[in-house]
């Protein structure tokens, strides 16, 4: 069914951690993800927002193939994705992009890792070009990843994820609270970069966050997650105007408060 308009379709996804896993300590009886349905079209941006423990990270990892769902279906472009293929179509960028880089590796080595794993290689020129695409200078290539700043590490993590994805097809990039740890100005630059890359690399984004601030700026649709389930889903505009679920109302209230604090502070919102 290649004509399925949805690039990603998730049906009744559930993930329960067995009691023996240390992760079960937080929710020993409740499943982390409880029957989630979701859809994402190519080149769209979906934000999944919820408090810690709502299961949003677990959901993201299941979609990215880093965890096995207990039950449910994940379809990519109308077909179930074979485990070996997932990482070429869906990539996840972690909460602390810097931590996803081995500090002993050089930048070029880290960038090429996705390919080296499959026995291929970039030439020097291609490596430099890819670094440039995310705003990293050629001189960075031989530095140790531990020597980069937070923002530079985020860019490198992005470049790696892009390197792993198949070119010429629509793909999905999941950002698991990846921008939260960055300075506001760096955040803004990253968001710009991601938006710039959307069309040329045919990327759809799933943004995982614990508050609405970033989501409101650039998500096409927001899904609110609470205790393992999607409780509300709407466009940002409609969500702000008419929140239904109590948790959504909390999130909206919190974001408005944050908004007013920054405007009152006299600095205005950082432009996107």
């Amino acid at each position: 069914m290649h004509n399925d308009p949805a690039l990603l379709r998730v049906e009744r996804l559930t993930k329960t951690y067995s009691r023996r896993s240390w992760l079960a300590a937080r929710h020993p009886e409740m499943p982390a993800v409880a029957g989630v349905d979701l859809e994402l079209r190519a080149k769209h941006c979906l934000a999944i927002v919820g408090a810690s423990g709502s299961g949003k990270s677990t959901l993201a990892r299941c979609i990215a193939g880093l965890e096995q769902p207990t039950s449910g279906r994940i379809q990519f472009a109308g077909r179930e994705l074979h485990a070996a293929m997932i990482h070429r179509r869906i990539q996840l960028i972690f909460q602390d992009p810097g931590a996803s880089l081995n500090p002993r590796f050089r930048v070029a080595e880290a960038l090429e890792e996705p390919l080296v794993i499959h026995g291929k290689n970039f030439g020097r020129e291609e490596t430099v070009e890819r670094l440039r695409q995310v705003g990293l200078a050629e001189s960075m290539a031989e530095r140790l990843t531990s020597q980069l700043s937070g923002g530079q590490k985020a860019r490198l993590a992005l470049a790696r994820a892009l390197a792993a994805l198949d070119q010429g097809h629509p793909n999905i990039l999941i950002l698991d609270e990846s921008l939260a740890s960055l300075d506001l100005s760096v955040q803004a630059q990253m968001v710009n970069l991601l938006l710039d890359l959307r069309k040329p690399r045919q990327l759809a984004y799933i943004l995982i966050a614990h508050d609405l601030s970033l989501a409101l700026h650039w998500a096409g649709e927001i899904a609110v997650m609470y205790q393992g389930q999607i409780v509300e889903r709407n466009t940002p505009h409609m969500l702000l105007a008419d929140p239904r679920h109590p948790h959504t109302k909390q999130l909206v209230a919190a974001s408005l408060e944050k908004e007013s604090l920054t405007t009152e502070g006299g600095g205005g919102r950082p432009g996107v």
């Binding site: 193939g65 070429r88 880089l101 081995n102 890792e113 794993i117 499959h118």
Partner: peptide, 21 residues
């Protein structure tokens, strides 16, 4: 560590995870 998960996310084999990371 996160960079091991990241490598897994790129499809690294256990052997590579052990030897390289």
């Amino acid at each position: 560590r996160e960079f091991v998960y990241a490598a897994r996310g790129f499809g690294a084999s256990p052997w590579r995870l052990i030897t390289k990371h």
